[in-house]
Amino acid sequence: MTVTREARRDEPPPDETTDGPDRRQAVDFDGLYHAHFRSLTVQLAAYCGDLSQAQDLVQEAFCRAFARWSRVSRYDDPVAWVRRVAWNLATSRWRRLRTAESWLHRQREEHVPGPGPDRVALTAALAQLPPTQRRAVVLHHLADLSVGQIAEQEGVPEGTVKSWLHRGRAALAAQLTTTNEVTDHA
């Protein structure tokens, strides 16, 4: 079941052109931004449980990429750099940012269209997972990273990632089942 899906790379939003040739000599910053901003934000939103914060984190990661663009653009996979920075921002600072930006929460609640029960249910279920498992599950399912790629991003052995995924998905499936039962009977 777990068996590695091979890297599909970071998925561009459906309405964007393919990101296949993103190792052209000079990667175009705007192109990269448009191709990946939304998909990265979705991943971070699933991890943080907060869309506006996810947008800020991804925007900040792109700022840092732009500030060293001459170097980052020459990397084999510049998106991986942006993604790693965004995730690191999320994992190491997000609590601090969160307090400072709590006012954004209220704003978001007024501006974002209804999230829909699917999103709410998955967000709630993800919130129950320990951060490591949540990261692994989100990176696997929303960033479409292979076990090996997750291990590289997180700096842990593949066996550890497999364990995180194994436990995380089991817990998530159980959570979602419970949620649905509750909803069904309500």
Partner: peptide, 20 residues
């Protein structure tokens, strides 16, 4: 996750590369 992805993608409002 697919449902989450689809629904959330619609809600993302990029500030844009010019803001960067």
């Amino acid at each position: 996750f697919e449902a989450y992805r689809t629904l959330t993608l619609d809600a993302v409002v990029p500030a844009g590369p010019d803001a960067v």
